[in-house]
Design a protein around this nucleic acid. Sequence first.
DNA 1: GCCGTTTTCGGCCCGACTGTTTTCAGTCG
Length: 572
Amino acid sequence: MKVTNDMIANQFNELADLLEIDGANPFRIRAYRTAARNIGSLGKPVEEMIKQGQDLTDIPGIGSDLAQKIQEIVKTGRLALLKGTATKFPKQLTELMKLSGLGPKRVKMLHDKLGIKSLAQLKKAIAKGELKKLRGFGETLIAKVQEAVEHREEYKKTTKLTDTELTADQLLAHLKASKAIKDVAVAGSFRRRKEVVGDLDILVSATNAKNAIEQFIKFPLVKTVTARGTTRAAVRLASGLQVDLRVVPKKSFGAALLYFTGSKAHNIALRRRAVEKHLKLNEYGLFEGKSSIAGATEKQVYRALGLPYIEPELREDRGEIEIALHKNLPKLIELDDIRGDLHTHTSETDGTESLEAMAKAAASLGYEYVAITDHSKHLTVTNGLNEKRLRKQIEAIDRLNLRLKGITVLKSIELDILEDGTLDLDDSVLKELDLTVCSIHSRFNLPEKKQTERIIRAMDNRYFNILAHPTGRLVNLRPAYQVDIERIMKAAVERGCYLEINGQPERLDLDDIHCQMAKDLGLKLAISTDAHSSTHFAYMKYGIYQARRGFLEKADVINTRTLSQLRKLLKR
DNA sequence: GCCGTTTTCGGCCCGACTGTTTTCAGTCG
């Protein structure tokens, strides 16, 4: 059986949960969680590393013990220790820890005193009023737990970044309307531009914290207030989204923004660095003894820690601090660096607007070029183009280019990669195009080796330029198909092909980890929107976010080039 | 259980809020 990094990470996390309930050494628990996180975001399958004889202790947070445990999981599929510990406490108990208000101590008490082992048993015990007998369980807490049990599935899911943007904008406008509030920022995973966010974290500086919190709670979409203190409050919106507010004085805004932006792992790494320098970092500032030496801006705090400013997208504790120390931080790509979109559709297939409308919309964004990439004939549900219709479109584009000023429309197509690795239109028409975008739209369930070789065979065709949405995943909806993405990237480098970062919010494919992998392999990428209407051109920014999270710079992306430079890159 | 520009042993980030408690443990981020 194939053992994925996620499977290993899950087992470590599960073990950490059980150890926590057991009251084990908290630092041992943290070691498991750190290991789980680092394995989960590794990009390269650990199974492969073992096969190639690589040293697993090179992975941060993995020592000799955990390296051995990883070996064990890869070999047997399962960690024996997890089985041993799991018999002491039933596995389902870890589910209870996910409920708001229940941590390891209370879950242990539920188990030891009431024999509760599952969500269903907990529900029953609440109904019978058994929880009241327990020390520390008052009326309010029981009500909170009951609420959590009932709404678990509704609340636990994450929200796509794009779905929170409108709420964030409305909330910011609402907060800025208050005279008490000075600075406002959305922090958290939203600011780090993660593809999904669990909640919104809002930070404000205010002359009067009480007024600021009152204004926050008055936001019209608030359904319930779940916490309310003198500097902090939390609400649940009607949509189910949780929003946290933190109020700090202006002189602490930078330190608080740093703290509230996270990630947690990045914060811990920074605080550790502060401790090494005999300083203390918290959300109010960086302190030497009692006196604050930085705090108004993030830049100040980083500088006082001997570091350059680190962009929010990089703050995942994936080596950015080490890289910053060596002054090797990338100058991350920006939206303005993009000169054109290389993946768009028209009403000839499944888009909603005409060729001319799409071209003009691209021109209005200041783009130098735009590629029209309608679907090809194999994708019949979209009325895909056959050779004849594609030739007609080529002629139409030639005519359009004579009329348009300031932008060049590139003749292209989104080809289907068939199961045998051939492309579904004849070379005789492909040679008339400026570029091709190629993708998988069928047979998602092939075994990894077959799927990988299918794609690489397609790349052998000299007219193959860009592999679109390379893993086929849909955020929160569908996992990637089984494919050896590293092998595909290497094959692309050898053949002069490129991979795409698809900016559609439900795709974001390649993801951040794969972007970083591409960069490490020297593979350049295209960032495209896969626009099916002119409004979709705006998805470019989501592609940029992924690219930034993957450490990409302008030079790593082909559609930052001028048209003539791009043409050279596309020549095979 | 990891890790080392003081260290192979002894550290390991830090504070707010809640609810229940009579001074703080548990949870959360």
